[in-house]
């Protein structure tokens, strides 16, 4: 899903076109700001898990520094690996292991007293950082 907004001055992530964030969705529920995002990243599972934990800690500090109140920030890491392709054209059956792991990363932040545009930018930057760390 793509959401439209005016970019905050501090928004310096790269995974957007114009004023759109790819894969980030936000809405307000009473006073709670709910911001969800997901991205598929190719890389090592253990490295991504560690880097994500570090990034979540940085995000939490940022929310608090902005005088926001954290309801919760949760992330989920799912891995498709190993991927095996089995094929035949009628003769032998070929079994092929596909190298590289596609890791699905989801992040949900439910916070109070936080600016929606800034939070979206911050979460988009989190995904960018994760991606860069695996490049």
């Amino acid at each position: 899903m793509i959401t439209k907004h005016n970019h905050a001055e501090s928004c310096n992530h790269h995974y957007h076109s114009g004023h759109h964030h790819h894969g980030i969705e936000s809405h307000l529920h009473d006073d709670a700001l709910v911001c969800s995002g997901k991205r598929d990243i190719i890389g090592d599972l253990e490295t991504i898990k560690q880097n994500l934990a570090d990034e979540i800690e940085i995000l939490a500090k940022w929310i608090q520094e902005m005088s926001g109140i954290i309801g919760h920030v949760k992330a989920l890491v799912q891995c498709d690996s190993p991927v095996t392709m089995i094929s035949t054209t009628g003769e032998d059956v070929t079994v092929k292991e596909i190298a590289g792991s596609s890791i699905h990363v989801s992040v949900v932040a439910i916070v109070f007293n936080t600016n929606v545009q800034s939070l979206e930018c911050r979460i988009a930057t989190l995904f960018d950082t994760l991606q860069k760390q695996t490049d």
Binding site: E25, A32, S36, K38, A75, L76, Q78, S106, V108
Partner: peptide
């Protein structure tokens, strides 16, 4: 029940 568009706890 989750207020976010993406579920985390349901997967767990």
């Amino acid at each position: 029940n989750e207020i976010g568009a993406i579920g985390i706890d349901d997967k767990v």
